[in-house]
């Protein structure tokens, strides 16, 4: 029922055996079914957010109640101000996080597109083994290369700088290359052949044929890169030491160490630090709209 609407947008003309009235009725039933399912699942998915929200508004005393209350007796909005402007400089953390995230994201984008295109569409004898190596780097547990990596970067004198967090991001991320490659493989070969016949260079094909068609995938990579860097905790803690260099995720971590029981302020700050991600998500999901792409092959 739902898949039907997925396959055929509501605006499409109904098939011949149905009168337009019948078709309209079926469409309306389907659509309300979809709404019901969406609202039920939204409720389930909203839970953590609501719980964070109510926790952030609890009084210090209600915080410790067990079993935990789902709703506070009174609302304490001052937790937000107290948490953000308390003993930790969250404004500085925010600025640092923005700098690291913006640079890393740029690095990820420019370094993943070319390898992904090569793995998807270019033939070479070494392609198979390199692709295996690419996948293998995703399979090695991060914890085990953590210590050797740290030793390497500290020998370079990069500890307590942003370099170990940013420089590697300019050399491709296996997961994103693999993701983009999968999308590049779905683009019809006819489009590429047509561009080649027109004399387009490989870069031109990538830029004017592949990238516009892979826009939803690019948006997804931007989103993942943003969220990943924004929330990065483990590596930041390892490499950044001075208070004026650390990031939001680290600040939140310090928070829980400093005031063990003050979940309310911690949740308040956590919610604030989530806001930019939600804005980025809302922008990214706009590219996930059917019918923008692939108009060029209607005649094939």
């Amino acid at each position: 029922m739902l898949l039907e609407t997925a396959a055929r947008p509501a605006r499409t003309k109904p098939g011949p055996p149905l009168t337009s009235e019948q078709a309209e009725r079926i469409r309306r039933i389907r659509r309300s079914g979809a709404y019901v399912l969406l609202i039920i699942s939204s409720a389930v998915f909203l839970l953590p957010f609501l719980w964070m929200l109510t926790t952030s508004l609890k009084s210090d005393a209600d915080n410790l109640a067990f079993p935990p209350q789902w709703f506070p007796d009174s609302f304490h909005f001052e937790n937000y101000v107290k948490g953000w402007t308390g003993s930790l400089p969250f404004n500085t953390f925010l600025l640092n996080t923005i700098v690291i995230t913006a640079l890393s994201m740029t690095g990820n984008l420019i370094s993943c597109i070319l390898p992904a295109y090569a793995f998807a569409r270019l033939r070479a004898r070494a392609a198979g083994i390199m692709f295996t190596a690419l996948l293998a780097t995703m399979m090695i547990p991060r914890e085990i290369t953590l210590v050797p990596k740290f030793i390497m970067f500290s020998k370079l004198g990069w500890v307590d700088t942003y370099l170990p967090l940013i420089v590697p991001e300019f050399f491709g991320v296996a997961l994103y290359i693999f993701l983009l490659r999968q999308f590049f493989t779905t683009i019809p070969q006819e489009l590429i052949d047509a561009a080649r016949i027109d004399g387009a260079s490989e870069l031109r094909i990538l830029w004017s044929v592949m990238l516009p068609l892979a826009r939803p995938a690019i948006a997804a990579i931007c989103l993942f890169s943003f969220v990943g860097n924004w929330n990065q905790y483990l590596e930041n803690t390892l490499y950044l030491r001075s208070m004026e260099k650390i990031t939001l995720a680290q600040g939140l971590g310090m928070f829980s160490g400093q005031y063990v029981t003050q979940y309310n302020q911690m949740m308040a700050v956590a919610l604030l630090s989530m806001l930019p991600i939600l804005i980025v998500f809302f922008l990214a999901q706009k590219t996930f709209i059917r019918g923008v792409t692939l108009t060029g092959i209607a005649g094939r």
């Binding site: 070319l114 090569a118 033939r123 392609a127 050399f171």
Partner: peptide, 28 residues
Amino acid sequence: REARRFHLFVSPWLVGFVLFSAGPILAA
């Protein structure tokens, strides 16, 4: 020519792999 292009395009990842991953992997 296609193979040459492949190697050129893959190089950002390949260089990064050699610089930042291969060493720690060997160490592990």
